[in-house]
Simulated assay, not measured.
Amino acid sequence: MGEQVTRVGIVGTGVISGTYLDHLAKLPGVEVVAVADLDLARAQAVATDSVRALSPDDLYAADDVDIVVNLTIPAAHAAVHQAALAAGKHVYGEKPLAMDRAEAEPLLKYAAANDLRIGCAPDTVLGTGTQTARAVIDRGDIGTPHAATAFMVTPGHELWHPAPEFYYQPGGGPVLDMGPYYITSLVTLLGPVRRVTARAGQSKQERMIHTGPRAGTVFPVEVPTHVTGVLEHESGALTTVLMSFDVWAGRLPRIEVHGTDGSLSVPDPNGFDGAVELVTAAQREWTEVPTAGGYAGAGRGVGVADMARALRNGEPHRANGELAYHVLDVLESFIDSAVQDQPLDVASTVTRPAAVPLGATPDTA
Rank of each mutant, 00 (worst) to 15 (best):
S50A: 15
A76F: 14
L116N: 05
L107F: 04
P122W: 00
I118Y: 10
A102R: 14
Q82P: 02
V51G: 07
E105L: 14
V125F: 15
T132D: 07
D64R: 11
V125I: 14
H90S: 00
A41F: 00
A84Q: 06
V91F: 04
A61Q: 12
N70I: 12
I73Y: 11
P122S: 02
P56V: 04
A84D: 08
H81G: 00
V136M: 11
N114E: 02
D37Y: 00
A147C: 08
R101E: 14
G143Q: 12
M152A: 10
Y60H: 10
M99W: 02
M99T: 13
D100I: 06
R42S: 07
A135M: 12
L59N: 02
M152G: 01
L97V: 08
D64C: 10
A98P: 02
I137E: 07
P145H: 11
E103K: 13
A112V: 01
K95W: 00
L97C: 08
I137K: 10
T130V: 15
L54A: 09
A98T: 05
F151S: 04
A41M: 02
A47Y: 08
G93D: 06
V51I: 15
F151A: 02
H77D: 04
G88N: 06
D58C: 00
S50W: 10
L116V: 06
Q131W: 07
G156P: 06
R42C: 00
D63S: 14
V68P: 03
L54D: 05
G143Y: 09
S55Y: 05
D64S: 11
A43R: 03
G88S: 04
Q82L: 15
H81W: 05
V91D: 07
Q82G: 09
A133E: 13
A34T: 07
L107A: 05
